[in-house]
Design a protein around this nucleic acid. Structure first.
Length: 509
RNA sequence: GGCGCGUUGGUCAAGGGGUUAAGACGCCUCCCUUUCACGGAGGAAUCACGGGUUCGAUUCCCGUACGUGCUACCA
């Protein structure tokens, strides 16, 4: 029955979508695409206290920007829906009751206060965080310790209760992870995790197993922070559906910040984004910057994420999505976590900008200029300018820094560079240059260069100094592509205008 | 504290019993350009430690150290 690969990703709508989350989706997606399977997204909105309105929509906008649109998702109902856990609520209780009937779970009536008291009572220097496990469950108020009639009465009175898994004693729970190979746990050391909460909602542990079964998931990739709770999930599979139906697990290495698992805090602290797109928390109004808004190309973002913890064994570092799908393999995913390096991230974006066509970049560059108040740019001219400056742009906003002078006459000049070289001879040269340029019929690169150089020879002035001054006249500073290329691009009238304006400005020297 | 996972330059990493231990980012030097980049040439910098096994260990095994994750009616 399970002959089709179905991988799923389950984001929790508790805030932004960070790097690790996107990479998990990416690896899921690559695997599904590579082997022709379905890519399913299910939303984990079981914890209403942490649920943030709007986050769900935001997550799918991020996925769309990254080019990771799922085949089945809450936004696109499929045959295994609903995909939102809150809408699947009725399904979970039955499975939890089944576990109780089979002796693999029990009702627990302990109040939060009683749990706190237990943790306090059993806390010692050697055991700072006591667990609700086989060693203490017989001292708590649950259907294992209470008389059957009392349990029935409590249930009849709708007393608040949870359902906990009854972890076995002295068994070895082992499973084969696609990345870590065999991982083993001693069942006695695993605690009796809550499966069904007092509000009737499942915890992640129950939900993930039930949903994966019902949705016929064959492969599940998730972050390594889940490895510790894998024995609970394996046990549930064993008790509920059989180990043979359990999906293949892959626990992906964590993406680390300068200290510990990469967090939103790290971004704020070190000045780089950690979310795919801008995220404003509606509760606090706090804005967290995204890679998109920082000026990353989605191609670069996907690329840098893909190779953070995986490589194809060759020296290749730049991969398109198509290449990733073709070359991705789970056995080349690293075991160890990787520290995120923003400098390298920027390098990827630079590479992608250099490799992108002007047409690809144009709409993004238009947006950058619009944000700076420059609009109504002619298309052909824009494309030409993009090709001229894209080599020196690392992030998208750099296009404004690197190309504004193509659209605006400079207001200030790098006087420190010009002043020492400025004299009557130079002034005379540029006044003559205006006359010569005006006389040009064809304002071509070649003609401009000829006029400029011949005049320099005629006036017997060193070409280098003239070029530098000329550049400052046109650009305002010492940057940009060749001066004659710029001259041709901005055109005869604008060139003459800029020389005249600069001449006026330099008259105070 | 317990349990899990991990450990090749500052970072990402290839390699995996005998190698001059790839490559990339970043850094430094030089060339190109009388601009800023791009590009090119070079440089500094690495197998956590201790025991085994072996003719030989960065590679295999065991410890230790260190890092990291989990240890909630959060995911």
């Amino acid at each position: 029955m399970l002959n089709k690969i179905r991988v799923r990703f389950a984001p929790s709508p508790t805030g932004g979508l960070h790097l690790g989350g996107v990479r998990t989706v990416l690896y899921n997606y690559l695997y599904a695409r590579k082997y022709g399977g379905d890519f399913v997204v299910r939303i984990e909105d079981t914890d209403q206290t942490r649920y943030v309105a709007g986050a769900e929509q935001y997550i799918f906008e991020c996925l769309e920007w990254c080019g990771l649109t799922p085949d089945e998702s809450p936004l696109r109902e499929g045959e295994y829906g609903p995909y939102r856990q809150s809408e699947r609520k009725p399904m979970y209780r039955a499975y939890a009751e089944q576990l109780i009937n089979d002796g693999y779970a029990y009702y627990a009536f302990d109040t939060p206060e009683e749990l706190e008291k237990m943790r306090d009572d059993f806390k010692t220097a050697e055991n700072p965080s006591p667990q609700y496990d086989n060693k203490i469950r017989m001292q708590m108020r649950n259907s294992l310790t209470l008389p059957a009639e009392e349990v029935q009465q409590l249930l009849g009175n709708n007393t608040r209760h949870v359902i906990r898994i009854k972890m076995p004693v002295g068994e070895t729970i082992a499973f084969n992870d696609m990345i870590h190979q065999e991982v083993r746990f001693d069942s006695s050391l695993v605690d009796d995790k809550v499966l069904l909460k007092a509000d009737g909602m499942p915890t992640y542990h129950l939900a993930v197993v039930v949903d994966d079964y019902l949705m016929k998931i064959t492969h599940a990739f998730r972050g390594e922070e889940w490895l510790s709770s894998a024995p609970v999930h394996v046990s549930l599979w064993k008790y509920l559906f059989g180990l043979d139906k359990m999906p293949q697990w892959a626990h992906l290495p964590l993406i680390m910040g300068p200290s510990g698992k990469l967090s939103k805090r790290d971004g704020a602290k070190y000045g780089f984004p950690v979310f795919a797109m801008n995220w404003t928390d509606p509760k606090t109004n706090e804005l967290t910057e995204g890679f998109k808004e920082r000026g990353f190309l989605p191609e670069a973002f996907i690329n840098l994420l893909a190779v953070l913890g995986w490589n194809d064994g060759t020296e290749q570092e730049i991969f398109s999505m198509e290449e990733l799908i073709e070359k991705f393999s789970i056995d080349r995913v690293h075991k160890a976590g990787a520290k995120f390096d923003f400098e390298k991230a920027k390098w990827f974006n630079h590479e992608w900008i250099k490799r992108s066509t002007a047409n690809r970049l144009a709409p993004l560059v238009i947006a950058v200029f619009a944000a700076q108040g420059i609009s109504n740019i002619g298309e052909a001219y824009l494309l030409k300018v993009i090709d001229l400056v894209k080599d020196r742009c690392i992030l998208l906003p750099d296009f404004y820094l690197q190309a504004a002078y193509f659209f605006e006459t400079p207001i200030t000049y790098d006087e420190a560079s010009v002043k020492p070289k400025w004299d009557h001879g130079k002034r005379d040269y540029f006044e003559s240059l205006i006359v010569k340029l005006k006389a040009l019929n064809t304002f071509s690169l070649e003609n401009i260069e000829d006029v400029f150089k011949n005049l320099a020879t005629e006036k017997n002035i060193k070409l280098g100094e003239l070029q530098m001054i000329y550049r400052v006249m046109l650009v305002g500073s010492k940057m940009g592509p060749g001066v004659f290329v710029i001259t041709e691009a901005i055109g005869k009238d604008e060139t003459i205008h800029r020389i005249e304006k600069a001449l006026e400005s330099f008259s105070t020297f």
